[in-house]
Amino acid sequence: MMRHLISAADLTRDDAVLILDTAEEMARVADRPIKKLPTLRGRTVVNLFFEDSTRTRISFEAAEKRLSADVINFTAKGSSVSKGESLKDTAQTLEAMGVDAVVIRHGASGAPFRLATSGWIDAAVINAGDGTHQHPTQALLDAFTLRRRLVGPDAGLGQDLAGRRVTIVGDILHSRVARSNVDLLHTLGAHVTLVAPPTLVPVGVENWPCEVSYSLDKVLDRSDAVMMLRVQRERMNAAYFPTEREYARRYGLDGERMAKMPADAIVMHPGPMVRGMEITAEVADSPRCTVVEQVTNGVSVRMAVLYLLLGGNEPAVAQNRSAPASEENHAS
């Protein structure tokens, strides 16, 4: 296992499957009355959020606390960053306080990579979303959700997503979720199709391991999952599309379109949803929509990532559960 998690592209198939399998173990913890493992007791994790985020930060915090880590939350607003302190100085300051891992969300693409590779700090770095680059734990929780739904929680163990067809719809150009998912789903053997108006597809997409379609209707009947991305209304002002209504008509998912999908196909969304824009309420509230499950799964996947990055070679959760004492014996 690697020391940092910066990009979904850095994960091998076996790395990814290990994370998903570990996340299944973690998910079982969530079903227990006491949802807590001692695995990261005495370890300190800082959530370093330079960009506004509610769900990702809370998800990481929940994961860290369930693993018994000490958690420090840092948000840029009102901090020394707003007084001009650099990323380097902020990170070094936090590390000097004895931080073992940094979970970073930053508006600049590449900021987590810089943090991990510039010799500024020694702590493990987990990318919680950087600019329009990557959001690897989102891709992992999406893959986890796909595997659970399409293969099954138990049947899925050890399995990848070979042959599954995933369609990602929306603002691909500005989406770190799309980039991470294309990388990870391809690694796991799935066929990915991106759907967007041509203005929201990046120049250079031809090198990505996926297909591109400008028509949602043409690909619905051959999608095992359709992942809708949030489309910000501001994009309209930069002439990416003419009006909100036209976008919704051409690329929004409504009940009529959902009916064209195969019977067991699912609808995914990383949230936050813009109802009436990329997704109608009818679809968002349907049992085929996994948006709430994705949130739940996010905690399990982030627990798995933290455990695998920080727990080293200590026993997996299953053994911890059956023989709690061995956790201390094996602690490094």
Binding site: G110, G131, T132, R176, V203, G204, N207, W208
Partner: peptide
């Protein structure tokens, strides 16, 4: 714009300078 617009900018998620 942050870098040349093309295959690499698409991957890195940096604003393209076409």
């Amino acid at each position: 714009a942050q870098m040349n617009e093309g295959v690499v900018s698409a991957e890195l998620g940096l604003g393209g300078w076409p």
